[in-house]
Design a protein around this nucleic acid. Structure first.
Lengths: 337, 337
DNA sequence: CTTGGCACTCGGGAACACAGAGTGCCAGAG
DNA sequence: CTCTGGCACTCTGTGTTCCCGAGTGCCAAG
């Protein structure tokens, strides 16, 4: 069906189109790549490729352009991820190492990805669901009001103000805190609800209403409130890339966190790279854009995902290389801090 | 120099140009606004206005367009801030009231502003410098490693991991924490350095190296590290507004936090609204864009600023009304929580 | 199966003309 | 002195036409 030469032609078309942003014709192909055959032969192959939907022509008598299906084949079988240069690796490492807290790690990662790929970068904060509790703090703010601070092993800190149903003495707060910490230290978030369930019973009856209030906020914060935060950057690169689709839609999608999370999140072993090309994309506003994403994490747990978003016509090997490298380094940094 | 009618003409030009986005000619003016004079008269006035630099024509024999100077006069003398409708006010109130922590307040404020004005919204986090300490927490994470958590009266929480020079027992940590809290509770950030200065002396000598380390990180976090965080949103609105200048520059400026902070921050009593029009703007990439900003805060202290950024050709009265209203409501919310 | 030749098809750019909107100026009226 | 109507002039934007060139599909021959 598709012999080697046809595949080579497809690869050449993709590469040329990516670098020139113009439909590529049979003659240009024969010139630039030494395929060892004449333009006429290439035309036949192109006809076959078009027949099967890998390429298309914008209008009669123009060159060919890869379809989404063509890019898909290219990514799956015709290309291999291009590793970064040594200089780039070192730059990543030093740039990320300078971060002092989680916010800064995330922010720097976004910039890095955007700069390396010249595309829009998206980074998801390390997920709540897969992390574990490192410490719980209860800080009295006023009568009947405390702040609950949760520190997770990913460095993430969640805080919530809690209004209490009744007064409670500081030493009883301290006791509750100690109790919580001894139960929850190192506890994976998925186990939190059951771990916490019998805490009220172990407290003196008069403390139970307060404890119940605090616990319910704690659960709500950790478990129910699954709004995975994410950050993006490099939108200036959108202006350069001329999108077939209005870039208004792209900007809108970027601000719809829900959409983005779905796009990033849908698959993935830890170091798998997910590529979603154009119309493979479930969200209609992003026709014409591709997403290259990967998971990152410390050790072997995937904590969250990151990736870039760009025009379908992008340099996949390079982009995938950059995404993979950044994901790995972020994982290392997180593990080390 | 500029009699009343000329001013009326200028106002009419601005209003028409804002609503149509086209150069406005003398005939159209005479039709749409009942100025009581003929087009020819208006032409004379326009010639005078152009003479003095308030309007300009894109090319000979086209209508007139306001210059930055013209908009300036309009904003200063010819317009008055348009208050929001009751429905809008209520929407703001309920939307902001639903926020549970500072992050969410800020995020919702951005969305709100962007939606109300159909422009890019920028919100600065409540400034560190003008807030005060509510609580200091020191959480042991591992041997020789603690997390320092600072809770400020604005609801802002700063955390930093600190590596200690030597081991220290938990109860001595607790003592240090108590000491810090008793000194710093309610302390304005500007007083922190002096307040903290003599703490080491009051500690047993063997604790001093650790205390010094922690204090230096604390000072660094609160005082030296003035990177005022800010958040923006509504970039999709950029695509609709056709900028004279490439919107690439605008996107770039948005990601350059430093630039934005300067733009927002440069003046302002608490409920003053700052308008910076086109070339009044110090940053060259933002020629063609105007900024409408206001301070917000609880009580009478200005905590930070917020605003919107849009094309010079924007509806200033409405935009200013929205910015003012949002700033007020955010202030209220912050004061109440 | 490959190749060279050939007729055919479009898209995009250049040249051109034209209508319409808007101006500036002038002379006359109030 | 100010306003008004008239008039000639100057643009831009748009629509039309035309042509070139790149690229294709097909065919017949190697």
């Amino acid at each position: 069906m598709l012999d080697d030469r046809k595949l080579a032609v497809l690869r050449a078309i993709v590469e040329d189109h990516v670098s020139t942003n113009e439909p590529v014709g049979s003659k240009a192909l024969a010139d630039r790549h030494n395929l060892g055959v004449s333009p006429a032969t290439i035309r036949n192959d192109m006809a076959a490729l078009e027949e099967q939907g890998y390429i298309t022509q914008p209008h009669t008598s123009a060159g060919r352009v890869p379809t989404d299906k063509g890019y898909r084949l290219f990514v799956d079988r015709l290309s291999q991820i291009k590793p970064l240069s040594g200089a780039e690796r070192r730059a990543i490492e030093t740039f990320l190492a300078g971060a002092v807290d989680l916010d800064e790690i995330v922010m720097r990662t976004v910039r890095l990805l955007a700069q390396l790929t010249r595309q829009v970068a998206v980074v998801q904060y390390p997920s709540l669901t897969r992390s574990s509790v490192r410490h719980v703090e209860i800080v009295p703010l006023a009568e009947r009001r405390v702040m609950l601070v949760l520190i997770l092993n990913t460095g993430r800190v969640e805080q919530r103000v809690v209004d209490l149903p009744e007064d409670i003495a500081d030493d009883r707060i301290a006791h509750l805190r100690a109790e919580l910490n001894s139960c929850l230290d190192g506890c994976g978030l998925s186990q939190v609800p059951e771990t916490v369930a019998d805490i009220p019973e172990r407290l003196p009856p008069e403390d139970r209403p307060v404890a119940a209030t605090i616990l319910s906020v704690l659960l709500e914060t950790l478990v129910e409130r699954h709004e995975e935060k994410l950050v993006f950057g490099g939108t200036a690169n959108l202006a350069a890339a001329d999108f077939s689709v209005g870039l208004r839609d792209v900007l809108e999608a970027l601000e719809e966190q829900v959409v983005l999370i779905r796009l990033l999140g849908e698959t993935g072993g830890l170091s798998d790279i997910t590529v979603r090309i154009g119309s493979e994309n479930p969200y209609s506003g992003l026709r014409g854009t591709s997403i290259v994403a990967a998971g990152y994490g410390s050790g072997d747990k995937e904590l969250a995902r990151l990736g870039v978003l760009g025009p379908t016509r992008m340099d996949y090997p390079v982009t995938m290389g950059a995404v993979r490298a950044v994901a790995r380094y972020v994982g290392q940094i997180l593990a080390g801090s």
